[in-house]
Design a protein around this nucleic acid. Structure first.
Lengths: 343, 343
DNA sequence: GAATCAATCCAAAGCGCTTTGGGTACTGAA
DNA sequence: TTCAGTACCCAAAGCGCTTTGGATTGATTC
């Protein structure tokens, strides 16, 4: 069922039918109702591609999901982010085009999205330090919003980010206030800008108390469960183990907890831990009382904000870039307690 | 840069340029090379929508991701499945269109995908018992592959599934062989067909040994960490606790392990557990030695298989439906041991 | 030398929609 | 009665591509 057939049924021109369906004023209200009724009855829906060709807009947003080539890992926060963004898209009759791409191919894919005109805009995931994708997108003139920041020229493009630096500074201070002096940082890969900022917050807090960050207590890798396990196990088995951990993700923290348990220690008593909690839907941080003390910021909500911002940019071009910095809550759970041997 | 401009530059007709780029035989090899070189230099790429309109194919596959309305949960296996499928798509120059949709709206979305002709085919996720989507897709004539099965008329459509029944029967037998008699099942929602089959395998194994499944030891809910924690905590605190668990997912198992730890018990010694491991990239089941004894089947691989099957169906229509039943490995890890008090 | 054929290329139609630039009929005012 | 104005509708162009149905050329065959 296409427009031609539908207008034949109605005995009207394609023009009128199209205008009736798209709520243009130059069509009689009675005929509009009739058109809509018949369209519904015949289950008519305009062909996406034809509409896109004619209007120049695709009503589609692109997401490029990088998959680490070295470790073949899909970022676990991605599902919830997508869920948040997808909600906004369907509410606004937009579609989402997903490209799962080896991180080395990313640039090519962005270029293709632009030159093939298959999307009206894109969300940039996982920005790295000085991420080249930003200049690239500006060059090709494709509207975009970055989930996170790249660390330079951040006022020149639109983004939604968590105040990672402050969150980790506060979390570190919280541990220091409990008397912990040997605090370990189990961080994400620090070519990612967010991980960089988290470390900066951690280091700042230590230095403000006159403590020197110990390189042996700082690890940075892809945030898997096993990384958390291995890092914590090694540190805790070392000569001067940490009494507290600052951990960049819930998944990694699960590995840390496993290591603590395997060594016969108890989380929250023998060892403290604060995590960053993205509020993943399938990995809630407990129910009544949080399992982990955490800096908390919903990645799903971030997805919604990114999508809304991008749609706004697409609908009102020529505006200055928008930015949104979210503050993370610091919620106290059962994974922290006073240091065993205060100075 | 579009075809018209490109052919103007080349001094050729659009026909010839189009044919040169699409490797049609009726164009001189020398001109083909020249066309391709100039196209590359000018960064030309055909407009997706125009191409789709002209050919009638979209080179796009739809995925409809249901989000549970009641619990707002995104299935955690989805990211890895998508990664597997996406790999195949990009290798074949296909795009992936994602709709994140409240489960109650699913039918509408499938209908729209079909009538708006925005995809060449779809993957059906999370089939429920007698899932109505299958009849719907057959009715509207949209090619599809189901990840899983619906439990009836399974020979009438294409699917890729794990032999869940056998996997859970084998896992149960493994526990029974170790002397366990009170085995608990912590399952996914049993309106999902896969969960149903897993329970069937579990029950069959028990009954073959003359044991009666105890309803108090069978739980079925959305597979979150907290569900695992709560279920295990309650069962283990009860009057006749289980000595072993059969757990439908890694995430839930993490909750079970937390409950076991909180109760001062040790996994693999005091309590045994076998999980089903989807080999999620960010939640590997250990490295050298598996953390959990597990029935194992890569969901990422399933994603690849579904995508390949669907592309094949699209390219060779009229074939009988294809099916692929994957057998899960049973790998022994550190979470199982003999029952403490054999009969 | 004429006819046949393969190799190359092209003009134009068509995919299904939106939108431009009128047309027609009816109204009320002059 | 005429004219401008409005409300409503339509034919046709155009979005950027593929594909049909030739046209042209040069080589080959008889």
């Amino acid at each position: 069922m296409n427009l031609k057939e539908l207008s034949a049924i109605l005995g009207l021109s394609q023009t009128t039918v199209s205008r009736a369906l798209n709520d243009y004023p130059e069509v009689n209200e009675a005929t509009r109702q009739r058109v809509k009724a018949v369209a519904r009855k015949n289950n008519y829906r305009p062909n996406t591609r034809a509409k896109g060709l004619a209007t120049g807009r695709t009503l589609t947003i692109g997401h490029v999901i990088p998959v680490s080539t070295r470790h073949e890992i899909v970022n676990p926060i991605f599902a919830d982010f997508i869920a948040g963004a997808g909600e906004i898209y369907s509410r606004n009759d937009y579609d989402m085009l997903l490209s799962v791409v080896a991180d080395v191919d990313e640039e090519r894919v962005y270029r293709e999205l632009a030159s093939r005109r298959s999307v009206d805009g894109v969300i940039v995931h996982g920005p790295r330090e000085n991420d080249p994708r930003i200049a690239l997108l500006q060059e090709v003139g494709l509207p975009f919003v970055v989930h996170g920041r790249a660390g330079t020229g951040d006022s020149g493009y639109s983004w939604v980010d968590v105040n990672n630096r402050r969150a980790f500074e506060r979390a570190t201070n919280f541990l220091l206030d409990l008397g912990h002096r040997r605090v370990a940082l189990i961080n994400g890969v620090e070519t990612m800008h967010f991980a960089n900022r988290r470390r900066a917050g951690f280091v700042t807090a230590l230095e403000n108390r006159g403590l020197r960050p110990d390189p042996a207590l700082m690890r940075s890798e892809e945030m898997t469960e096993y990384f958390g396990f291995r890092a914590a196990h090694e540190m805790l088995s070392g000569p001067t183990p940490p009494s507290a951990f600052l951990i960049s993700s819930m998944i990694t923290a699960i590995g840390v907890r496993r290591a603590i348990g395997d060594l016969g220690l108890k989380l929250g008593r023998d060892v403290s831990a604060i995590i960053h909690d993205d509020e993943l839907s399938y990995l809630r941080n407990g129910e009544e009382v949080p399992i982990f003390t955490a800096t908390r910021s919903s990645v799903r909500h971030a997805g919604q904000l990114c999508a809304e911002m991008l749609l706004d940019i697409i609908r009102h071009p020529g505006q200055p870039p928008a930015q949104k910095l979210l503050e993370a809550d610091l919620t106290v759970g059962m994974s922290t307690g006073p240091a065993a041997t205060p100075d």
